[in-house]
Design a protein around this nucleic acid. Structure first.
Lengths: 224, 224
DNA sequence: TCCTTTCCCGACCGGTCGTTCGGTTCCCAT
DNA sequence: ATGGGAACCGAACGACCGGTCGGGAAAGGA
């Protein structure tokens, strides 16, 4: 128990021992606290002093573990991006018929999103304000493009609905999947695997099959 | 032609005459410039000085038109929310069988999103940092809940796929629709009406009909 | 022409930002 | 027990933040 941390049961409490010892951090644990704050108030709106307080530290102590505020962000975004790109390397995402590969990719993306929820959430909110954010944005675009190419490959097997440009389909698919980070909270009644299966299924079913309501001609939404 | 505005053909240029007269603003035009900047760099990361420069004004001049930085945000968010809630009042969203009402609601939501793109985009990025943002967040939740109730009504007519909780369906639907603000740019080859028709069709088709890949039991995602 | 209103400006305020620095406290291997 | 590195602290830095203020230029009606 402590009165220091702003939220009960926080990392700040876990990091000190059972007694009220002085908190001792390593970069990864501090990262956890920092990302939590970044998500809560936004990166720009979070001050180093707030980061320190949330961790039970003075703000100058942060600089013992990270070179700068931006370095914290970089590490967090890197973690999210690495986890996402690892999915692209998985066998089932690289071999087999495109529709099955796309299904696997979407399902695993959701699972990673849930698994690394804070880090991916932070990634999805990046807007390109600093060099670090621009770098993350570009890496993320690479990922999106791979998904788009897989959707295009699925389309060329006839798996896409009439009039739906593959680029648009990919965007809608990714938008749906990414939006999960805005409401999903671990510990709820919905398991990550079930959510992933369902989201992938809903998404794929949405962009495939016969059109119900016709959209005359919807063309030209390439992932750039 | 001017060297003042950061982007060519900006509102800052349009607002002065053909000659290089002094810019004269009214709140609405200034709002347009401000929202553009808020989207570009984020609300917190945008300073009043930057707002002024983007408008071709000194930062103190902003306060002639708006009481505070937060007042600018409030006006922008209000514009987006009013446009969205107006859709809920439309006849076709209130009368008829639930599936048709849902289709209309989704389609019109996309059209409003595109129509008021900067303002809705700003709304969708709000995280609840100030009283204004909390207010906007709550109004937005009301809108989401109305959509969720319509999805639930659609479900009770048997229009929802097996195992898909209406709350989860609504979230996925809204996530897909809202994500359009992250990539759609007016002037592209895709008209707002076509996009709206296609997005609504993809979304509805995704959450309805028979399941392809089974998700054992996916339950419990209520819109709060 | 003159006066009023609208609009805009530069200088300035207190406060907070990210960051630096010299020094203190703690843990642990020796 | 003791030396040394890792972890942490408070004070202070210059820069910049949102906001205020008194005054000047432009527009418009008389």
């Amino acid at each position: 128990m402590s009165i220091c941390g702003p939220i009960l049961g926080d990392v700040a409490d876990r990091v000190r021992g059972a007694a009220n010892k002085r908190p001792r951090y390593d970069p990864d644990r501090l990262l956890e606290v920092a990302v939590q704050q970044f998500i809560l108030r936004g990166y720009e709106a979070t001050s180093m002093a707030q980061l320190g307080k949330a961790a039970g530290l003075g703000k100058s102590s942060i600089y013992h573990h990270f070179a700068s505020k931006e370095a914290i962000l970089h590490r967090a975004l890197s973690r999210a991006l690495d986890a996402l790109f690892a999915v692209l390397e998985e066998e089932q995402a690289r071999l087999g018929p495109p529709p099955a590969r796309l299904e696997h990719l979407l399902r695993r993306t959701v699972e990673v999103l849930v698994d690394e929820l804070p880090y991916v959430t932070l990634l999805l909110r990046v807007r390109g304000n600093s060099r670090t954010e621009l770098w993350a944005l570009e890496r993320r675009r690479h990922f999106d493009r791979e998904v788009a190419e897989l959707v295009a490959a699925t389309a060329s097997t006839g798996g896409l609905r009439q009039g739906l440009e593959p680029g648009l389909g990919a965007r809608l698919l990714l938008g749906m999947v990414n939006s999960i980070s805005e409401w999903y909270r671990p510990g709820g009644p919905l398991s990550a695997a079930d959510l992933a299966r369902m989201a992938a299924s809903v998404g794929l079913h949405g962009i495939s099959g016969a059109a119900r309501a016709g959209a005359a001609g919807a063309r030209g939404a390439k992932i750039d």
